[in-house]
Structure formats: structure tokens, C-alpha cells
Amino acid sequence: MQIIVKNIAKDYGKKKNAVHALKDIDLEVAEGEFLGIMGPSGAGKSTLLNAISTNERPDHGQIIIDGIDMTQQHDRTLAKYRRHKMGFIYQSFDLLDSLNVKENIILPLVLNHSSKKIIEQRFEHLNRLLDIGELSQRTIDDLSLGQRQIISAARALINNPEILFADEPTGSLDSKSATILLNYMQIINQREKTTILMATHDAFTASYCSRVVFIKDGSIFSEIVNSGNRNDFFEQVINMQRTIGGGSYFNIP
């Protein structure tokens, strides 16, 4: 599913107090791409992700997904679109504490009014894939951070999303859990051709992407494409981070 972002901007606050979170950003994401969005804290990564995932409306500009301009759609349509075509993984997991593990995972399908049969089938499939069977009846409070993120990923994937949004998915995880999750995301991307957009400021996490765009102060600063060698790509990411952190500024023409 191709994503085209045209000239979007987003401000928070009003008049003198306004903060320009996004400034006229243009971006294209090809179908099946694993795109990383990097940048320092406050650069606008999450805002960009929220805008593309239709959770927030930009002040102006267009977000075209699969040929549909999302900025022109009604909230109801967007909500429907989100639950049918998109999946979300957040750093804070955003799991519902009142529901148990299984209920959290199947929630997107239940919201879609899917049949009980499909719900059970999909849950069983993920169960096998992620090996979360023994957690299914536990409450969220009983899970470790790594387990919570896996559950969060399972929830994001239960409805076979065409686009997966991940906002700092490994931020709360230890390195082992982070690797498991990232490997799994890579598998999803390669096998299911799921388009993945991931915001992160961790170079190791970003090295799993096929391309990384760097954002600074609400604008796209630079981008790096993964040539296939992960180590080289990782170095490039580190260098770019150093550049941004050093204050040098290269505008993308």
C-alpha cells in the first residue's frame, strides 16, 4: 500500500505560543517498505507517525494512502480504516488493563464485528507464531515489559494490517526482547508485504529498516537507504545521528 505525504504541517498551541511540530513535510513510502523515522526528541517523529496513521489531522497538506486522501475523510471513516488496514505498536504498549491478554489481542477484530470463528482462528494463528498461548488468560499487570510489547504487537497484527505503525516499539524492552520483536517485524514485512513505519531514536532498531528518514525541528533533514549490509547501514545511521546531534544542517532539496 503506497503512502504519499504532501506538504503537511502541524502546529500545537496558538499564535505566539505556537510550536511548529511539522513543517511542510513531503514523503513517499512504497508498498511493503520498512521505513524508519529517526530524529532527536521533540523533532516531530511521533507527530508525523500520528498524522500518517490518521490519529491526528495535519493543519494542511495531503496524506494519500492507497489513492485516498485521508485528510478529506470523516472521523468515522478514518476510524474504520484504522481498524481494518492499520496496526499500532506503542512504546507505552497502550494495553487496556481491564481486559486480559486474549481480550486485548482480539479487540481490533471485535471492534470490526468479525465472527467468533475468525476471531478464534486469528488468535490461534498468532498464538502459534508468537508463542503466547500460556499468557492468554493473564491480566496485563501480571506481564513483564517484554511480554507486554509482544502482546501489543500481537494486537497490532491480529487483523492482518496492510500498514503497521510502531512508535518507539523497543523503547521499554531489554535487548533480547527487542531483537525478538524486530525480527518478527522483519518477517511480517518480508512475508506479508506489510508496510511498516517505525519511529525510533535507537540506531540498532533502525538498522532493521530498508530506509530511514531523519527529522529535525519538524522538517526532513536527510535519509539513508539500506543497501543490504546491515552493519554498514547501522554505521550510516550512527553517523547521521552524530551529524544531527552536532548541529550541522543539510537541507534536502
Binding site: N55, D75, R76, L78, A79, K80, R82, R83, M86, F88, Y90, D94, L95, L96, D97, S98, L107, P108, L111, R155
Partner: peptide, 15 residues
């Protein structure tokens, strides 16, 4: 937080 999460994962405002 629960209501907010519900919205983020795809529940519409109407729901």
C-alpha cells in the same frame, strides 16, 4: 487512559 487507548487502536469517536 483506557478510553484514549481505545480510540488509538481504532474505535471511532461515535463508539
Amino acid at each position: 487512559r483506557q478510553l484514549k487507548t481505545l480510540k488509538r487502536i481504532g474505535a471511532s469517536e461515535n463508539e
